[in-house]
């Protein structure tokens, strides 16, 4: 499904702040794979995600989705295949617009906008049904501005928006990191439900080792711009946090020094 071949990315090349963020990374996702990605700060998780999404171009390598080479495609064109939820709850929705308007935009992800009126009675009914699935009472608030929603509600809405037009690939960039633990868990359960329902191929970054082990059928650990190890579903089932840490020390030859990873 997703084929990443030897991609590299250096930020600010030739300057004092030069940073090799991705080094020869290759990754293949089979259809329906739900891969969790962990790693300390600066490991390259977000760079990998943004390279796939096209936020910036990669220096080397190739990215294909279902055989289509998207390496040179701009961000907005890749959106045809990719649904995304960001870490910042503000990023995924337009705060000043109504829930309905946000959904109408997401419902047409990847299609050129036309001069058709963006909302209709049919679409409204469809949106209401989808919102009911979130169990947040948003189905009665179609005309509320998204800015009035809480962070958790906004992430749930963004998740719905990212998945309502059936993306080939779903990218979740620490999408629960900004939420309180209880809300984070709710949003994660919802995420899992939607992914299973639609059998979505998913890449999910998380800071939380427990979540990384609990969700998905594959786990990759990143370190200093490359993939340290890749654990398949058989091995992942029997793995604990201690095992992960031991594997990390063995592979990286150093202790994991990210507090946020250890504490969570």
């Amino acid at each position: 499904m997703l084929h990443i071949e030897n991609i590299s990315k250096t930020f600010n090349p030739g300057t004092i702040t030069e940073k090799l963020a991705l080094h020869n990374v290759s990754l293949h996702l089979a259809p329906g794979d739900f891969v969790t990605v962990i790693g300390g700060n600066g490991a390259g998780k977000s760079t990998l995600m943004n390279s796939i999404a096209g936020t910036y171009p990669v220096d080397e390598g190739r990215i294909t989705i279902d055989g289509t080479d998207i390496t040179k495609w701009p961000e907005h064109k890749r959106a045809k295949y990719i649904g995304r939820v960001f870490q910042d709850p503000m990023m995924g929705t337009a705060a000043g617009m109504m829930i309905e308007e946000n959904l109408a935009i997401a419902a047409r992800r990847g299609k050129s906008p036309t001069l058709k009126w963006s909302s209709s009675a049919d679409s409204r009914q469809h949106f209401r049904e989808l919102l009911m699935g979130l169990n947040l009472g948003l189905e009665d608030r179609l005309e509320s501005k998204v800015g009035l929603l809480s962070g958790g509600q906004r992430q749930a809405l963004t998740l719905l928006m990212a998945t309502m037009a059936q993306p080939k690939l779903l990218l979740l960039d620490e999408h629960t990191a900004a939420l309180d633990p209880k809300t984070a868990e709710k949003v994660l359960l919802l995420t899992d439900k939607i992914i299973k329902q639609q059998k979505l191929t998913t890449l999910m970054i998380t800071h939380n080792m427990r979540d990384a082990l609990k969700y998905g059928n594959r786990l990759i650990m990143m370190y200093e711009g490359h993939i340290l190890f890749d654990i398949d579903s058989e091995k992942k089932k029997n793995l604990g946090i201690k095992d992960l840490l031991a594997m990390f020390e063995k592979a990286a030859g150093s202790e994991l020094n990210s507090d946020s990873l250890l504490l969570s």
Binding site: A53, A79, G83, F86, G92, A94, G96, A104, I105, A162
Partner: peptide, 19 residues
């Protein structure tokens, strides 16, 4: 709607496939 969303949140509208 896409023009208006661009002003509110360019990230969001690019992630939804609009230039």
């Amino acid at each position: 709607t896409a023009v208006r969303a661009t002003g509110f949140n360019p990230h969001m509208i690019r992630a939804n496939g609009i230039n």
